[in-house]
Amino acid sequence: MNRYNNLFFILMLTLSLLLLSSCQSDENTLIIYTSVDRNYSEQVFNDFEEKTGIKVLPAYDTEASKTTGMVNKLIEEQNNPVANVFWNGEFAQTILLKEKGILAPYKSPEATVIPQNYKDDEGYWTAFGGRARCILVNTDLVPPNEYPDSFADILNDEYEPSKIGLAYPIFGTTATHAAAIFAEMGALEATNFYERVEERGVRIVDGNGVVRDLVADGTLIFGLTDTDDALGAVNKGKPVKIIWPDQGEDQQGTLIVPNTVAIIKGSENNKNAQAFVDYILSEETSDYLFEIGWIQGSTRAPDGEVTILGEEIKTIDVSLEEVYENIEKTKEVLGKVFIR
């Protein structure tokens, strides 16, 4: 029986160890939930820790949860918030969190140079940095005179539909882009457009990263993706070229997808949270984000013009709020079109 007593004692000791060792009690910490790719956000958190001495406890999203994991978690935690700050790689979900009463207002001094259309009037969120939707072409497979120059080229008969790629337009920035198109074209015309995309047999894949990889390895001749994903292939020396779609005078332009940062309700007086918002909105951090490849442009221009990769590009003429207002309906409609 002694042997069992010993076994029981060891088991209890291990369980107590499990319970005790798991508890976190450091006070000079900041909890940040982020949907930004870990490869980038991790570097930023390290830089912030080095500069301020504040320890960041991050919670990352994964592509597997289509960047909605963190938003779902914030909604579930609404009554007993854990996070201090939410750093989002896009804007629509942040506006949604404001609507749900999950955010707290904070007007950062660093936000004064950011144009009004990139920040919430009441200070619930601020947009910064920017990625853009772009066309990535495989230069080995398409001669320069045949490069696509419009988003609508995915319906162009000159290109084989199975060689054109698009991520599911119900997730991530592809959904945000679709919502912008819905806002710009109107629901009927936009739905018709996407129905034709589906009927034509354009390759719908699982994420912008997959579009990039398939274009880079020559499976696709071109695809629509984000600049940060596209640059991954460019920097690896793949035979690809980034093209800004719809830059003609009578064309709609492309979508800029800025990051957003917000303080979670309950942390409005948290100095560490404010310090992070100030840090991420600063010019120095903007340059750093550009340097590491997460953003390709800045929203800090006072006239509201956005340059991406040093080029001034034409953008879709819809506000962030208009895109947000269309996103739920867009996802619902496109879910029915593409999930078959």
């Binding site: 790719d37 870990r38 490869n39 990352y60 994964t62 592509e63 597997a64 994420g207 990263g209 990039r212 990889d213 994903d229 991954g232 292939a233």
Partner: peptide, 9 residues
């Protein structure tokens, strides 16, 4: 972390 890498390619 693997899934983070996946998106990064």
């Amino acid at each position: 972390r693997i899934f983070g890498y996946l998106h990064y390619g």
